[in-house]
């Protein structure tokens, strides 16, 4: 009956039978050292290196010089950086709620047990997640295109240029559609998995109380998956701020609209690989990383606070 001694939050501690203080147990390191080793090499070291780089400037005269926080001061006043930042922020505010809303609707529909062929729905809606971003963008890019795309076909049929996916005012919507297509199913699965873990007793109580339809969704299902919604929101925020693949692959098709500083990540990339400005590129990456981490943290705090209430 050692199970009784196991506190729910501390299932990690092996029950100790002796009263003396246990000796330090290094056994865990047998398991965690390989991950730690690669983690240090691919996370900690590059991060430290980026911080180091961001404090220097490669000048025409004098070579590599320590400049303190000059790069950061410059980044905070850099219109190209802020323009890209504003773009991903707009993208985040519009695309993420639409995508998560659709994912939630799909998850609720599948969880309602009122669909025919539920399993088929679940798999097919999740399927786009398995398609590589490059292929997804190529497919949509072709479909958007005015050469042999669907957009061209529809415009021809309508007799006017109604759909112009690569026009300046359209291109963010076009990218948003591709991202939504790729990730609705992924978020749907996160929500659906959480819905399945809601205790049945709650539904039984609701049935006795005579709750129906939307009442059950509002009173039981949505509060029950709040944790999953917070997690999905955080991942989507991180994804939006990192936006790179979709605009980068679309760039050849809309080169006059999608510039090298279209998103902060593309900016950091072009600074490095087109401009050789490694120090400033590292600075932009760090500023963006800090902003992302802070916003993710705030969402996490808000999410858990509401959960307590």
């Amino acid at each position: 009956m050692t199970t009784l001694a196991r506190a729910p939050e501390l299932p990690t501690v092996p029950p100790r039978t002796t009263l003396t203080k246990p000796r330090r147990d290094w056994n865990g390191w047998k398991f965690v050292w390989p991950f730690a080793l690669v983690f240090v090499l691919t996370f900690i070291t590059p991060l430290a290196y980026a911080l180091w780089l961001s404090l220097f400037q490669n000048k025409m005269v004098g070579g590599n010089q320590f400049v303190g926080l000059d790069n950061y001061v410059f980044a905070l006043q850099d219109p190209q950086f802020w323009e890209g930042f504003g773009r991903v922020l707009l993208f985040l505010v519009v695309q993420v709620p639409i995508m998560l809303g659709l994912a939630l609707l799909a998850a609720l529909a599948i969880d309602s047990a009122r669909l025919y062929a539920t399993g088929f729905y679940r798999i097919v809606i999740f399927l786009p997640y398995a398609v590589p971003a490059v292929v997804a963008v190529l497919m949509w890019g072709f479909m958007y295109g005015d050469n042999f795309g669907l957009a061209a076909g529809i415009n021809e049929w309508l007799g006017s240029e109604v759909i112009r996916p690569f026009a300046p005012s359209w291109v963010l919507i076009s990218i948003g559609n591709i991202v939504t297509w790729q990730f609705v199913g992924y978020n749907m699965v996160i929500f659906y998995s959480a819905l399945k873990t809601i205790p049945t007793d709650l539904y039984e109580a609701a049935e006795i109380d005579g709750a129906r339809g939307w009442q059950v969704i509002r009173a039981i299902k949505l509060p029950g998956i709040r944790g999953a919604i917070v997690v999905a929101t955080i991942f989507s925020i991180i994804g939006s701020f990192q936006l790179f693949n979709e605009p980068s692959v679309l760039q050849p098709l809309a080169s006059n609209v999608i510039t090298g500083s279209f998103t902060p990540n593309m900016y950091a990339y072009s600074l490095s690989f087109a401009g050789q400005q490694y120090n400033y590129s590292a600075t932009v990456a760090i500023v963006m990383g800090v902003i992302t981490a802070v916003i993710a943290y705030v969402v996490q705090l808000r999410g858990s606070r509401k959960e307590v209430r």
């Binding site: 983690f39 691919t42 996370f43 070291t45 590059p46 991060l47 290196y49 980026a50 780089l53 955080i234 991180i238 701020f241 990192q242 790179f244 990540n265 950091a268 990339y269 490095s272 490694y278 590129s281 590292a282 990456a285 760090i286 963006m288 990383g289 992302t292 981490a293 993710a296 943290y297």
Partner: peptide, 16 residues
């Protein structure tokens, strides 16, 4: 590290 944007590390990783 889950919250650190992977691409933020890409350029320093490349230089390293």
């Amino acid at each position: 590290a889950i919250a650190v944007p992977g691409t933020a590390l890409a350029v320093p990783t490349f230089l390293l």
